[in-house]
């Protein structure tokens, strides 16, 4: 159990919160919109490309995701994705390329601790929570959907 703050600490926190500069929300949101939109546009091109090869819209989804994951992983490996992320924030975190970045970056970082306890064990250190809660919530939503359809 974390201790409750004393009056003196609370007053100091209030004072500090006024002192701390706020992140540039509008600028961040603008770049997130721009970069996020750009990544999705690339995704659309790739999707159209797979459709032009004769896949249906539904079938083209999987190879598109795979290609985007590959691009995200490649840019992470080349040391470019973190620079994009610094400017774009959520704009490059939310798309599937960001998911690739969150898995490849710890895998690279912990390679020196070996392939078992380093790469494999640490690979999901950032993406793990996303997977756990993503899968759990999709299961619950699916269950609700199923029950309502009955």
């Amino acid at each position: 159990m974390v201790k409750k703050l004393t009056k003196e600490q609370q007053d100091f926190q209030q004072y500090i919160n006024k002192k701390k500069p706020k992140p540039p929300y509008i600028k961040n949101a603008f770049f997130a919109f721009l970069v996020g939109g750009f990544i999705c546009t690339i995704g659309q091109f790739i999707l159209n490309f797979y459709i032009s090869l004769g896949l249906t819209f539904k079938e083209a989804g999987a190879p598109t995701s795979a290609t985007m994951v590959f691009i995200g992983a490649l840019l992470t490996g080349l040391g470019i994705y973190d620079d994009i992320g610094k400017i774009a924030g959520a704009g490059s975190v939310v798309p599937i390329t960001g998911f690739a970045n969150s898995i490849v970056s710890p895998a690279m970082e912990f390679k020196r601790e070996g392939y078992v306890f380093g790469v494999a064990a640490k690979m999901f250190v950032v993406a793990g929570p996303v997977l756990v809660y993503g899968l759990t919530s999709s299961f619950i939503v699916g269950l609700i959907y199923y029950l309502f359809k009955l």
Binding site: K20, P21, D82, I84, S102, V104
Partner: peptide, 17 residues
């Protein structure tokens, strides 16, 4: 960074503080 925060290549933003 690797001990206290995130992997170097992770594309995240740092707060101004």
């Amino acid at each position: 960074e690797r001990q206290f925060r995130f992997p170097l290549e992770l594309g995240n933003q740092r707060p101004p503080t």
